[in-house]
């Protein structure tokens, strides 16, 4: 397998100040890599340096074995495409026209696109489920729709390496999941490499095969989300006093402070019912103990506390 992008000893930053130094890594076709790190650590700068939007301060970036400095702008536009966090506002522009601009590395001098280009644009719109937005004005779309259209604009460029800077901002949880699925498929189906930055741990856990982490004072750490969980390093990198990491679910929970004690006596086989009842109790500050002064009985069809029947957790909670 040939290496798509290789970085040796790279330093990058703003102006004369190097934010990141001594970076070494490779990206292979078909990889889905997530870049994580605190705000302001230089994620965006690194992403932009890889595509020639920022100057390489030191070291070398090779794309397909050729130094990035030896590429001209139009050759580079067929190797790397971007989704940036930059706002786009163009008066009167329609979605289709925007996507056509995204395809312009392949258009001729007069901006004309070929038959194949139109097919690619349609295919991407179809895959992202935005065919219906084709003739809509971009300015009038919702934030989520805009983000999807901008992603489509990136994908129509059809480059072996796709770089996405925080692709899931503005998206709600279901849209996020949809985007994850979509990018995974895209990566797999067309054997493209995707490098994206994100703050969303749950998203990374579901999506990335590889992850790179920045932590101030340390180098770029290469790992996988799963290794991070198994080595109990998640809290080290992303932890905060008010959250606990659960190795079981791979997710963060709020650290609980308990004020009262309660014990549970279950008369049901519905394990979910027991689990979510406990969840609600703990959230309200009740520590579940083996034997306590108060006992909550759980039946198949009701909860019983101090001889009172409750038929939903909503009814139960105020009387705890």
């Amino acid at each position: 397998m040939s290496v798509l992008l290789e970085v040796k000893n790279l330093a990058c930053g703003h102006g004369k100040l190097a934010l990141l130094k001594n970076l070494n890594f490779v990206i292979n076709p078909g990889e889905l890599i997530c870049l994580m790190g605190p705000n302001g650590c230089g994620k965006t700068t690194l992403l932009k340096t890889l595509g020639g939007l920022r100057e390489v301060m030191q070291g070398t970036v090779w794309i397909n074995g050729k130094n990035i400095l030896d590429y001209n702008a139009s050759e580079l536009s067929k190797k790397i495409s971007y989704l940036l966090t930059n706002k786009i506002s163009i008066p009167e522009i329609r979605v289709l026209e925007l996507l056509k601009i995204g395809r312009s590395p392949y258009s001729n001098f007069f901006g004309r696109l070929g038959k194949n280009d139109v097919i690619v644009i349609r295919r991407v719109m179809d895959e992202l489920n935005i065919l219906a937005l084709m003739d809509k004005k971009f300015d009038e779309l919702s934030d989520g729709q805009k983000q999807k259209v901008l992603l489509a604009r990136t994908l129509v460029q059809d480059t072996p390496l796709v770089i996405l800077d925080e692709p899931t901002t503005f998206l709600d949880i279901s849209k996020k999941m949809e985007m994850i699925k979509l990018l995974k498929n895209y990566c797999h189906k067309y054997h493209k490499a995707i490098l994206f930055s994100s703050h969303d741990w749950d998203l990374v856990l579901e999506m990335a095969n590889k992850m790179w982490i920045f932590k101030e004072g340390e180098h770029l750490i290469h790992t996988t989300p799963e290794d991070l969980v198994l080595n109990e390093q998640v809290e080290h990198y992303f932890g905060h006093d008010s959250f606990n990491f659960s190795k079981d679910t791979g997710l963060f929970n709020e650290s609980r402070n308990y004020f009262k004690k309660i014990s549970i006596d279950s008369h049901t086989h519905d394990r979910n019912k027991i689990k979510w009842t406990k969840h609600a109790l703990e959230k309200k500050g009740h520590e579940i103990v083996a034997t306590g002064s108060r006992v909550l009985q759980i039946f198949d069809d009701k909860w019983v506390l101090e001889n009172q029947n409750y038929f939903s957790i909503e009814e139960l909670l105020p009387n705890l």
Binding site: G52, A73, L76, N86, I88, I90, I93, S104
Partner: peptide, 21 residues
């Protein structure tokens, strides 16, 4: 220079990623 102008609609950085000098 109509083609570069079309690219510029997306802003400087996007235009560069699309091959604008």
């Amino acid at each position: 220079i109509a083609k570069p102008l079309n690219l510029l609609l997306l802003g400087d950085e996007y235009a560069k990623t699309l091959g604008l000098k």
